[in-house]
Design a protein around this nucleic acid. Structure first.
Lengths: 129, 129
DNA sequence: CTAGAACCTGACGCTGACGTCAGAGGCGAG
DNA sequence: CTCGCCTCTGACGTCAGCGTCAGGTTCTAG
């Protein structure tokens, strides 16, 4: 597949794909004329990358963890494995923070809804234009 | 309270507080010499801001929602209220994405752990140095 | 009165994941 | 052959939430 097709299938920009390759997160072969050629599983790969980005991992961090993902049987340094667990924990903490934040929003929303209902009742016949 | 004390109590930098004020998220009175003076509840306010930032809201978005938070009884445009609900939904979606991402990480971690255990057993007496 | 901490206003720097523009090839259809 | 679309490599632009330095004023302890 050429880069445009991968981009469309994975739902990302062509620019992003080139960036991922540049960061060592994605590999491609080249045609004699220099055009990139991607394997079928590149689409899945890109979607995995997207999920890791969403998780708040940086390109560099992802690059460190990918060997672990690609060949779990290898002797891919304990460091990478530890790092992955560490990132998982960081993510858990972040999720908790977001849940907290959502609670806060919910409380504000509830307070508003109450006041709105009151206002609606009080003003029903008060300002009849 | 002066700015330094607020910063310390809220656990943020002085620079951040000035930035918040600049963005209209925080108010202060000024002493004749021009120094900022904050009320007691400024600390709480800052912590609220922090939570909203964590939730992924931008300064501008927060600025739009704050009237709603501060005076829920006011006629603070329905738009602001709608916006708040919209942001809550966005946050929920994001949380789901993060949970998904964590699952992905967990699967990778589990796969690695398995392979590691196998390796440990196979290699136990194989490379005794 | 004076040293030093805390405060002030600009204003530039930084980071990361791309967007975007420029200029120059490829490549299939008609 | 050529028109139009895709691709290539640089390389600069962006945005946001601050960090940080500069140069100057103000407050406070001794």
């Amino acid at each position: 597949m050429r880069i445009g097709e991968v981009a469309e299938r994975a739902g990302v920009s062509v620019r992003s794909l080139r960036y991922y390759e540049e960061q060592g997160l994605l590999t491609s072969s080249r045609s004699p004329s220099g055009q990139r050629h991607f394997a079928e599983d590149a689409v899945e790969r890109v979607q995995l990358l997207q999920r890791l980005y969403v998780a708040g991992l940086s390109s560099r961090t992802i690059a460190e963890l990918l060997p672990c993902v690609d060949s779990p049987s290898d002797a891919n340094s304990d460091a990478a494995f530890e790092r992955m667990i560490q990132e998982r924990d960081r993510l858990s903490v972040h999720i908790d923070e977001l849940l907290h934040a959502r609670d806060t929003l919910d409380r504000v929303i509830a307070a508003n809804r109450d006041h709105r209902r009151e206002m609606a009742r009080a003003g029903a016949g008060a300002v009849p234009a």
